[in-house]
């Protein structure tokens, strides 16, 4: 039993990483209306930013903030120099451009930091035992940090004027404009937020495992799977589906082995889409 609870906990932590990255994907999809393939490499940027910040200050908090800010800057630059110029094009053009941005980011990181794996040098802490279950304090800190980030994002979306405007643009861009909402201010905030959120996911993944230029690209597919399972464009759905996929992957590892657990997220995606094509929390597409 303790074994399964341990798997559940590590599944939830993995799920938070997937959920945060899926949240970034779903925010961009809902408002800028294309699947952003640079999400994974923005995660990597966040992980390296945090690694540098942590090495310089020995503070995980400062490291995390450095990484999140680096991600926000990358998000904004991508918008300002690439996606803004292509806004009138089809979403396929935007997708292809985001794949290009992903390669550029990865190449820059590879040249700057090399391709060897790096780790956060954290002090070893003895796990707490709750009953028979070992609980790692670091996992709790990371889970708490993720929960805080999620709370901040949802507070921005639902409690602030700019968040309301973002949701209004997601509902209907033309009606938002005739309501006086400037698309460029909404887009700027969206990209800063999406960049910081993906970077946070990358930071958590980097702390849990290792940091390498390829890490974000490897995490991109489960993130897309979660965004789709949750219902594309639904922030709550992205997080719930991320947790679900994380838990399913970890709990299935004893049966299918480490190598094949990634495939499970796609099996889950197929099943959900067959039963409920709009995803768990997706809206029905209204007739226009």
């Amino acid at each position: 039993m303790a074994f399964w609870i341990e798997l559940l906990i590590s599944g939830l932590v993995a799920g938070l990483v997937i959920g945060l990255s899926a949240l970034s994907i779903t925010l961009v999809f809902g408002i800028a209306r294309f699947p952003n393939a640079a999400t994974g490499d923005t995660m990597t940027v966040g992980a390296y930013g945090a690694l540098l910040g942590h090495r310089a200050t020995n503070s995980l908090l400062v490291g995390g903030l450095t990484g999140a800010i680096a991600g926000a800057i990358v998000g904004f630059l991508g918008y300002w120099f690439i996606f803004r110029k292509l806004a009138q094009r089809s979403n396929v053009a935007l997708l292809v451009a985001s794949i290009g941005l992903a390669f550029v980011l990865r190449a820059i990181l590879g040249v700057s930091f090399g391709h060897s794996q790096q780790v956060f040098q954290l002090p070893l802490v003895r796990p707490w035992r709750i009953g028979d279950v070992p609980v790692h304090p670091n996992d709790l800190v990371l889970a708490g940090a993720c929960a805080t980030i999620l709370a901040i994002v949802f507070a921005i979306l639902h409690l602030t004027p700019i968040g309301r405007r973002m949701r209004a643009v997601a509902d209907d861009p033309a009606l938002a404009r005739v309501s006086g909402i400037s698309p460029s201010s909404v887009m700027t905030v969206l990209w800063l937020l999406a960049g910081a959120v993906s970077a946070s996911a990358g930071i958590v993944a980097g702390i849990k495992t290792v940091v390498s230029p390829e890490m974000g690209w490897d995490l991109l597919l489960p993130a897309f799977a979660a965004a789709i399972v949750g219902g594309i464009g639904s922030p709550v759905g992205a997080v719930v589906a991320g947790l679900l996929i994380g838990v399913v992957q970890e709990m299935a590892t004893p049966f299918v082995g480490f190598t094949y657990k990634i495939a499970l997220s796609f099996l889950l995606m197929l099943v959900v889409l067959l039963v409920r094509p709009r995803g768990l929390f997706g809206k029905l597409e209204g007739a226009r």
Binding site: R167, L175, V178, R288
Partner: peptide, 23 residues
């Protein structure tokens, strides 16, 4: 631009899709 026309005092009610459904 459209959003500035709204600020200047032009209101518009489109035929369909004239509210934000998820708000």
């Amino acid at each position: 631009p459209t959003e500035m026309r709204a600020n200047r005092g032009i209101g518009y009610v489109p035929q369909v899709a004239n509210i934000f459904p998820s708000l």
